[in-house]
Amino acid sequence: MPVVHMASIVPISQSVGANRIIPTVAIPYPLGNPTLSPAEEKKLRRGLVEKALKALGADVTEQTVF
């Protein structure tokens, strides 16, 4: 089954061999941003998760950063 890796430090994700990579916000809050309002933050998170779903739907032949 395909796996998408959502991580902030893309070079590590590449080094360890993830095939589908979504760059995220920051280490303590990959899928959030505490400086935003709760509604804006959720919108940001939704955008990232939608991107992850797109990556899961895509065929890739090598390590790909979406």
Binding site: S8, I9, V10, P11, P23, V25, I27
Partner: peptide, 9 residues
């Protein structure tokens, strides 16, 4: 430094 975002790194 060693910050938490890729851009900073």
């Amino acid at each position: 430094n060693e910050n938490v975002t890729l851009a900073d790194k």
